[in-house]
Amino acid sequence: MAIRLYDYSLSGSCYKVRLMLGFLGLEYERVQMNFYPGRQHRSPEFREINPLGQIPVLEEDGLRLRDAQAILCHLANSHDASGEWLPRDAERFGPVMMWLMFAGGELMAASAARLHDALGYELDIEEARRKARAAFRVLDDHLTAREIAGARWIVGDTPTIADVACFPYVALAGDGGLGHEEYPALRNWMRDFRRLPRFRAMSGIPEFI
């Protein structure tokens, strides 16, 4: 049951998958992608692996999956006996899915800002930052309400794949010129997340906390 990850160290989306593999204690084979400057993810060879030309891609037992959020669902579904990373009860399943979609949707504006500032992607940076700040505020308001309710995680009493999916691009905001000054609840949640056992940092997220 070998797991193979098409990976790029600086990708926040690949980092979601690396985090989850780490939390679940899973061994995996890493296929190094030359994302930048090589643009290997857009090569004809890689398009055969993922027609969308995006990373990460995860392979396991003949299954080939793209989209970080889908991969998190798969890993939790197949490898988490506790069921806590992807809770199936009605109270938590829907909200976890909702924040998972948010991580792959609205929050990706922060990824765009980062790609612009660090790797020179041509896009409307002010628009990307405005959308990222709007998404950060939505999550900060939610986590403030959670703090008031005496809770720490996005859904329920334990971290879920919603936390894993939302963490990278919130934590990497600074790479796209976005500060954390306006989001006290996000800061506290990120610190709690970084203190989880088996947490690993990535470039752009300081090691020490």
Binding site: Q32, P37, S203
Partner: peptide, 15 residues
């Protein structure tokens, strides 16, 4: 591989 060398250097630089 070239990809490995670049990934190492970029990881350091982004830190």
């Amino acid at each position: 591989t070239v990809g490995d060398l670049i990934d190492f250097q970029q990881s350091i630089f982004l830190q």
